[in-house]
Design a binder for these strands. Structure first.
Lengths: 240, 240
DNA sequence: CCCCGCTTGTTATTAATTTAACATAAATAT
DNA sequence: ATATTTATGTTAAATTAATAACAAGCGGGG
């Protein structure tokens, strides 16, 4: 069933839960809680105890029967899994509204993610600083990234220049792109990981769920799924 | 199998894809493409044609055999499903870095989401405006929301005041909360929908995936899953 | 020292989601 | 007209994820 050297792929569903574990364990640690069972975690997180045990077993055996998990140890293990043992250097690209907000936000640094430079094209801000972080011209970005061991590029530029920036980034040693632009990024055949933050999608999802109750009524009125929407009776000609 | 009046619940997996359909169809519409098949959509979106047909059939029969979908009609249907036929009034709570960035972002308005007021407690900004949007004191929020038919509250306050704000919001006619704070919101037994945007989670997920290759090596070195981490040999006593 | 209860890691079961298959109907070409 | 192609809506199969079940190991108490 399982080849000796083969490692089972961790599903995205599990990966998405890892930050929740990490944050929850961090809180327990700050409260000086020493041990925790999967059942206790279940109550705190809202996942089933079974799921928690199975999630963690993707990465190792961190607990002990009859005891549970040592909070401090498990926290450290999850931190390792998430790659938080070393700090990460980031550059921020785009110092518009969102970019400035990200630059000013101190929450990332507490987890070891530090913005060490900002890049923009606007001559009125290039040369200035945000919270001691220097703003350079985008033209200097490629050189800077390669010579400063930057891990992550935070992309907060307008959608229409995304492609141009990505073209530059794929020629650098960057490992990940945190993409706040509305443009989807496809980096094929490169070992660059992309994480998209599409705020509009999130808002539209919220809108759907707000609208859902009304939608149900509409569907009911139509007698369920068997309603036809014959959108055209006849069409003289058609453009491909 | 299916009761006459019963409506099958639309899964979250489907809902999360709706914005992608909406955006893709919008682009086709702007390019004056008149018709599109599930196969063509498949290429554009990266989902299988089968999945697209099944997703859409959750809401009705919008296509025609041998023809495909009329782009304009399908776009309008998806817009209806997402609740985008009427515009939405939003209030922004918290005019810090992120709040200001959100207030300045014009992208929401193009989809009919308008921030009509901002609330904060900082006396140095209360009374001022951002892009013509007035900033009021949080104390006036409850009254404002109820008397102005506000649909959505955008929450961009520090995590430690989230609870206080939510306590006020549940007493209003608000329909949805778009939560940018790191604090999870649980509105039990209320018809308020919450959408969380946890940026830190997103960053940690990115970090995991960047770290993944290294992690695989580590797991391999340990000979897969059979490695024990005996975290304690002996423990004299224990604090619950 | 030994038993009892607790809690893990893992296997089995169930549920959900995705993909494939196909019967059917419209559109186009002959 | 008629045949052929196209592409849907829907049912079936396969895959993936979540939950439940349980054997085995550790801790605590007598």
């Amino acid at each position: 069933m399982e080849q000796p050297g083969e490692i089972k792929k961790v599903s995205m569903a599990v990966i998405k839960r890892l930050p929740k574990y990490y944050k929850c364990l961090g809180e327990l640690l700050r409260k000086n809680v020493e041990r925790v069972s999967s059942q206790e975690l279940s109550k705190l997180l809202g996942f089933t105890a079974s799921q928690i045990r199975q999630d963690l077993n993707n990465f190792g055996e961190f607990g002990q029967q009859g005891y549970g998990y040592n909070v401090s140890q498990l926290y450290n293990e999850v931190a390792k899994i998430l790659g938080l043992t070393t700090s990460h250097k980031m550059v921020l690209i785009g110092a518009g509204n969102l970019g400035q907000a990200l630059a000013n936000y101190s929450g990332f640094a507490t987890h070891g993610f530090n913005i060490i430079a900002i890049f923009d094209t606007n001559p009125s801000i290039v040369g200035r600083k945000i919270r001691d972080i220097p703003i350079y011209h985008v033209d200097d970005m490629e050189y800077f990234i390669n010579s400063n061991d930057v891990d992550i590029a935070v992309l907060a530029v307008p959608g229409d220049v995304t492609e141009k920036i990505v073209e530059v980034l794929v020629n650098t040693d960057i490992r990940g792109i945190w993409n706040f632009t509305p443009t989807e990024i496809n980096v094929s055949n490169k070992d660059i990981t992309v994480e998209n933050v599409h705020l509009i999608d999130s808002l539209l999802t919220l809108s759907y769920r707000i609208n859902e109750s009304w939608l149900r009524e509409r569907l009911l009125k139509q007698e369920g799924k068997n309603t036809k929407f014959p959108h055209r009776k006849k069409m003289s000609f058609m453009v491909k």
